[in-house]
Design a protein around this nucleic acid. Structure first.
Lengths: 301, 301
DNA sequence: AATATAATTCCCGAATAGAGACTGATCCTT
DNA sequence: AAGGATCAGTCTCTATTCGGGAATTATATT
């Protein structure tokens, strides 16, 4: 029983789905299935009941869930306790709007609880800018979306900058096109019955991925709006389709009547300068990996 | 960071020696070295300071030790908490004298604390008898010493019985011949200046291993005595050399002036009937593996 | 009934862990 | 002070494990 197994278990328990959990933690479903089965065999008890295609926790599963949370929390605490330098000072963290909204609250809260002496300075921006800022030393690290290879190939300097930094996969976002109410399902951009795609600034990776997708079959224009709330508002008017990660949409309690089209996964990486052993950065990194895959609300303790 | 790594760390921290720890948990020293190094690299801090051939815990190592203990204890608790059937009733456990004295107090205390509804019935005996009793259903499980292949080959029925049972390595005992004070070091049994070897009953595995060793170079007789205390007494008189596991000797605060000769490792296995899924047995098994390698005193909590 | 979705199974290539031989340093003995 | 023993660590080889992808099965949905 290692902590990676517990992370997998927590993800499945949180999403009640092998497929979703696999996406969330950047693994393949077959792997998740196997690890869960191994865990169950190791413990000698069924953690989930498989009623058809639903994964629901059994009573024992609920019990184990509590322990899994405590165990991972304790392991994180152990890591932090032996950290050679006590983190303090500033941590300049760059992040995308979407990540700041959907993923960051939990780990940031946890981090502040553990290291009150570190003041986190949050900078919002789009991935290429953030990456450049890390390289320039203006930021200690940043959470950025690395587009798929086909899209990245069009952004030479972004790609070059990424090469010079060390990066680690943290989240996998499911990028979607949100359709206005009543809009029929689409197979490609040519099926769009709206005037434009609502997205953020030009540099935004999600926007670029969406534009790359749209270009293949349509000449639809992109409309630039200032925030995800503004995107939602645009979609609500029926005049645009919105581009955003699914996690952001879920955050907004909009789920019920929304049609969406899947543009595939986009990976979020934590990037920092190679060999940068700043203590606060390391600590933040550990909190990030310990928190990912868990339920979005704050962990106990 | 998995629990196996923590077990290795705990063993090294307890013995302050890679070699000893490796023996205690049935691994090879190079493996222990590597795993400790990996752990240190993962945590980014030195857990041990290597002054020559001594391994001493660093300050961070001490800190981490506390967490490692809590982590393994919590993991054990998690396993027990999801156990499908609550263990209760009787657990008939067979054990050798030596194991009962040196290894069993800690896990038995822990087990009683966790499952007060199980009454453990302890039966002492020598390995072949205990094995036979497990097979016959008189015992649920037993801790027995499986002699090296050369010796086991002479005990056909013992060997046959073992084949029919499932077994798992739990401890590795270092079997020694304890020499009387003032006795010169020996290379083989022919160097013995005493009239006999003091050992327990004829069926005792340790006795058989010792006799096997003695036969190769000497005609020294074995003297049968009733207990390890009696063996020590015999040795103290200067008339016999005593056969026992090192862990028993260490238990008796006799270490200082004692010369001993090493007869090599003898493995202690937990044996039970194949497919026997008795809950209490499983629970005891888990406690046993969680406790092995730790310091002999009782774990916290 | 047909389709889509999700979990699982199977298989293969890659990564990892453990065993064993060897090295170099240190401690103890003579 | 020299020689031997002991111990941590290194290196290499091999066996096992693990993760990814395609195929399969089962279950909801339309």
């Amino acid at each position: 029983m290692d902590l990676a197994t517990l992370e997998i278990f927590l993800a499945v328990a949180g999403d009640r789905s092998v497929t979703k959990a696999a996406k969330a933690i950047g693994r393949v479903p077959s792997n998740v299935t196997t690890r869960i089965q191994q865990l169950e065999q190791d413990l000698g008890v069924a953690l989930f009941s498989r009623d058809g295609k639903k994964m629901t926790l059994t009573g024992e599963g609920e019990t184990f869930l509590a322990y899994a949370n405590r165990l991972t929390a304790l392991a994180l605490e152990a890591r932090q306790a032996v950290r050679p330098l006590t983190p303090s000072g500033n941590l300049c963290l760059g992040t995308m709007e979407s990540t700041a909204a959907s993923r960051l609250p939990a780990p940031l809260t946890q981090f502040n609880r553990m290291w009150p002496d570190v003041s986190v300075r949050l900078t919002m921006g789009v991935s290429p800018e953030l990456t450049r800022s890390v390289l320039a030393g203006e930021l200690d690290c940043a959470l950025i979306a690395r587009p798929p290879q086909a899209v990245l190939a069009e952004q030479q300097s972004f790609s070059d900058d990424l090469q010079k930094l060390q990066s680690e996969l943290i989240f996998v976002e499911e990028l979607i096109v949100l359709l206005p109410p009543g809009h029929p399902d689409i197979k490609s951009a040519s099926d769009l019955r709206v005037g434009s795609l609502a997205a953020l600034e030009p540099g935004c990776t999600y926007r670029r991925v969406a534009e790359f997708w749209a270009r293949k079959s349509s000449a639809v224009k992109t409309m630039e709006v200032g925030s995800y709330h503004a995107i939602l508002a645009s979609v609500a008017t029926g005049q645009a389709a919105g581009v955003m990660p699914k996690s952001v949409l879920e955050l907004m309690h909009w789920l019920g009547n929304a049609r969406m089209h899947d543009l595939g996964p986009v990976e979020t990486f934590l990037v920092s300068r190679r060999g940068d052993r700043a203590s606060a950065l390391d600590a933040f990194h550990d909190v990030l990996v310990a928190t990912r895959g868990k339920a979005p609300h704050l962990p106990p303790g």
